[in-house]
């Protein structure tokens, strides 16, 4: 499977291979735009969530075209599998009446117009700005092979080292070897999300029926039955 190698890159071959891939790219980006517009247009939040799922599907198709299969699958798994489901749960949880869902649109049109002007300006800036090389490339392989100080690397060894591992393996090296601080910050962020969600939304359920499953399962029913029989015998004798 050729996608296991970080080549510079699949996208290049995409551009060379021409019509099918390029048209797929245009198709997917147009679909992403249209479903994003439908997210904004639809009156019902449930429909908005479903159109957001459609946007994520198109974006994951774009990532497949870029040659990033791991991120395409991650987008499907995390955004659609977890985030959209969570949105649906909350929309269902809140029981918003239909009259409020169908409320009329009102918005801050000057702010939106300002954002549109920003779009045009940034588009012009995008087409004028030179993007050839990145000045911030992380030196990956010195860290792995010789430590940060052992910088004896001829060009060929770096190239073979870079080509012999997949993009995901390089991502692992960058995440666990170079940018450990980002990893730990991410774990703290997830911790905040977990604890915050529980502390904010968990309440005591007052009217729920009380079942202690362990107590129910651990009843020794032979003792209970014999106790009842003794008492009934005592009643019949008196």
């Amino acid at each position: 499977m050729t996608s296991l190698v970080l080549r510079p890159l699949c996208f290049n071959s995409l551009h060379k291979k021409g019509l099918l891939m390029t048209s797929m790219f245009f198709l997917l980006s147009t679909g992403a735009w249209m479903s994003a517009a439908l997210v904004l247009r639809s009156k019902n939040p449930v429909h908005s969530v479903f159109y957001l799922v459609l946007t994520f599907l198109h974006a994951s198709g774009l990532l497949v075209l870029l040659g990033l299969e791991f991120f395409a699958l991650l987008l499907l798994l995390v955004y659609i599998g977890a985030l959209a489901i969570m949105f649906l749960f909350v929309v269902m949880l809140l029981d918003i009446p239909a009259t409020e869902l169908m409320a009329h649109q009102r918005g801050a049109y000057p702010v939106a117009g300002l954002l549109f002007v920003t779009l045009v300006i940034s588009l012009v800036g995008l087409l004028w700005q030179p993007v050839e090389t990145s000045p911030l490339v992380t030196p990956l392989w010195p860290v792995v092979q010789g430590g940060p100080l052992g910088l004896e690397f001829p060009e060929t060894s770096w190239q073979t080292a870079a080509m012999s591992h997949s993009a995901l393996a390089q991502l692992g090296v960058a995440l666990y070897g170079v940018h450990v601080d980002l990893l730990l910050l991410a774990s703290l962020l997830l911790l905040v999300a977990m604890i915050g969600a529980v502390a904010l939304t968990l309440t005591r359920r007052v009217h729920a029926p009380l079942h202690d499953v362990f107590a129910q399962q651990s009843v020794d029913y032979q003792k209970v039955v014999s106790l009842v029989q003794q008492s009934t015998q005592a009643k019949t004798f008196t």
């Binding site: 791991f70 860290v143 792995v144 591992h165 997949s166 995901l168 393996a169 390089q170 991502l171 692992g172 090296v173 995440l175 666990y176 070897g177 990893l183 991410a186």
Partner: peptide, 12 residues
């Protein structure tokens, strides 16, 4: 986050 460790993070 664990999958990149299993594929390449073990090298670190």
């Amino acid at each position: 986050f664990l999958i990149p460790w299993a594929l390449g993070g073990v090298l670190s």
